Amino acid sequence: MSNLNGAYYGPAVPPPKKTYHRPSRGGGGCFECCCGCIFSLIFKLIFTALIIIGIAVLIFWLIVRPNVVKFHVTDATLTQFNFTGNNTLNYDLTLNITVRNPNKRLGIYYDYIEARAMYQDVRFDTEFFDRFYQGHKKTNVISRQFKGTHVVPLGAEETKELNKDKEDGVYGIDVKMYLKVRFKLGVFKTKTLKPKVTCELRVPLKSAGGGGGGGGFEVTKCDWDR
Rank of each mutant, 00 (worst) to 15 (best):
N3T: 14
G6R: 13
G6I: 12
Y8T: 07
Y9M: 11
A12G: 04
V13D: 02
P14D: 08
P15D: 10
T19Q: 01
G28A: 15
G28H: 14
G29L: 15
C37H: 06
S40H: 07
L41P: 11
L45M: 10
F47A: 13
F47Y: 15
F47S: 12
A49N: 06
I55K: 08
I55N: 10
I55G: 07
L58G: 12
I59F: 14
F60D: 06
I63D: 05
V64Y: 09
R65H: 09
P66V: 15
V68P: 00
F71W: 14
H72G: 07
V73S: 01
D75E: 02
N82C: 04
N82M: 04
N86D: 00
N90D: 03
D92I: 04
T98H: 03
V99E: 02
R100W: 05
R100P: 04
N101Y: 00
N103Y: 09
K104H: 09
Y110F: 03
Y110S: 01
I113E: 00
R116Q: 11
F128A: 11
F128C: 06
H136L: 12
K137Q: 01
K137N: 02
N140R: 11
V141M: 03
I142V: 09
F146W: 10
F146T: 06
K147W: 05
T149K: 11
P153N: 12
E158P: 10
K160W: 05
D165L: 12
D168Q: 11
V170P: 04
I173K: 08
D174K: 15
K176P: 02
M177W: 01
Y178V: 11
Y178E: 12
V181T: 03
R182K: 11
R182W: 05
F183D: 08
F183S: 09
L185H: 07
V187L: 13
F188C: 13
K189R: 15
K189L: 11
T190K: 05
K196C: 01
K196T: 01
R202K: 12
A208K: 10
G209H: 14
G211M: 13
G212D: 08
G216Q: 04
F217R: 14
T220A: 12
D223I: 14
W224L: 06
W224V: 00
R226T: 11
